[in-house]
Simulated scan of single mutants.
Amino acid sequence: MEPCLHHDVADGTATVVIRNPAKRNALTPGMWRALPPLLERLAADPAVRALVLTGEGDTFSAGADIGSLGTTYEESTALALPAEEALAHFPKPTLAAVRGYCLGGGCQLAAACDLRFAEEGARFGVTPARLGIVYAPSSTRRLVDLVGPATAKYLLLSGELIGAERALRTGLVDEVLPPGGLDGRVAEFTRVLLSRSALTQAAAKEFTAGPVDPARLEYWREQASDSGETREGIAAFVERRAPRFGWTPPARSDRHPAVAGPSVPADHSR
């Protein structure tokens, strides 16, 4: 099997699968480059309401293909950072479904997702100290925001791996599932996400990402006022029925950019 990012869309959810089983799903340069434009396409697809990132088989990802890493700071971060930022700025809910090893660049991608569900036995590691790589400031800050400075320092300074239960305690993962229970729980939870207001979700993702420009706050106020989402949500609650939320993102020229990172041909996605 050639290394690739396989993806499909079904029932409102896009699933992106990291495939390189010969190297424990390590990400090749082509796979890193393919992720930003793939995410851009999925963000623009009205059929996509949520995204799940996972790995082929029993491993999420062992990180970057070490043989492809450059020896300078610029070279070592040039591939992973655009992919990480594209995932972090994806405008719809994202969830990493983790089995087995989730290391290095793989953990970097998982941390860029909104949520992380893991199967018992999963192992997590942030490993630049093993290679003498300076972890990017944005990646470091994202990790600190997720697990706090103490655990971030433990992971970054030692490069040691932690298990799923410790990852759960420290906030690196949100749920730990027994063997065989991950896929069912992910499917169940994505159905929950799809039943909620896309307007609320999109605004929440932007607000939690950092300081909000007053113009952007006004934009979201207008969207909330014009969409009728609040009226529908309250009416559904009063009438004891499921809400029928209908908000969809405006045309691309009228909204915040969907993803960060360069647009390059997705030569390894299919």
Rank of each mutant, 00 (worst) to 15 (best):
P3S: 10
V9E: 00
A26M: 03
E74G: 13
I66N: 04
K153S: 14
E120N: 09
W247S: 13
G100H: 06
A187Q: 12
P250S: 00
P257N: 08
D114V: 03
E74P: 05
A236E: 01
P46S: 06
M1S: 13
R141T: 05
W220L: 03
G261E: 05
D254Q: 14
T13M: 08
A136W: 02
A129G: 04
T170L: 00
A152T: 05
V126W: 11
P214M: 04
T72D: 01
Y101G: 08
K205W: 05
T151C: 13
S225P: 00
S269L: 12
E222D: 15
A43Y: 13
G246Q: 11
R255V: 04
T94H: 09
V134A: 13
M31W: 00
T59V: 15
T127W: 02
G228W: 00
V212N: 01
T151S: 12
V176G: 08
I162K: 00
K153T: 10
V176Y: 04
A50P: 02
F117Y: 15
A236Q: 02
S197Q: 04
G104A: 12
A258Q: 11
A26I: 06
P178D: 03
R221F: 12
Q108H: 14
R24Y: 13
R166L: 15
S195R: 13
H268Q: 14
T127H: 02
D226F: 00
D145C: 05
R166Q: 15
L172F: 14
D114R: 10
P46L: 11
G132T: 02
V147R: 03
L217K: 03
A204N: 06
T230K: 06
H268S: 15
R216Q: 10
A198G: 15
G132M: 04
S227I: 01
L35N: 02
G106W: 07
S225F: 05
I66E: 10
E2N: 14
S227F: 03
L35P: 02
S227Y: 01
L217D: 10
R221H: 13
H89L: 07
V126K: 06
A235V: 04
I66L: 14
N25I: 04
V16S: 10
T248M: 04
T230E: 01
T28M: 05
R216N: 06
L155D: 08
M31F: 11
D183T: 11
R216F: 06
C102D: 04
E218Y: 09
P249R: 07
T94A: 05
L131G: 09
A64Q: 07
H7E: 03
P82A: 07
L27H: 09
A187S: 13
S197I: 08
V264M: 11
E56N: 08
L194G: 11
V259R: 09
D254E: 15
A198Y: 00
F237V: 04
P249S: 03
A202W: 09
S225W: 06
R185P: 06
R130Y: 08
R123K: 12
D45I: 13
A136F: 01
R24V: 15
M31T: 06
S227Q: 04
P128K: 02
G63F: 07
V192G: 03
S61H: 03
C4Q: 14
R141A: 12
V98S: 06
A10Q: 14
A34D: 14
D183H: 09
P178T: 12
D45A: 13
T72I: 06
H268P: 00
L199A: 09
W247K: 13
C102F: 10
T151R: 11
Q201S: 15
A152E: 05
T13N: 07
D174R: 09
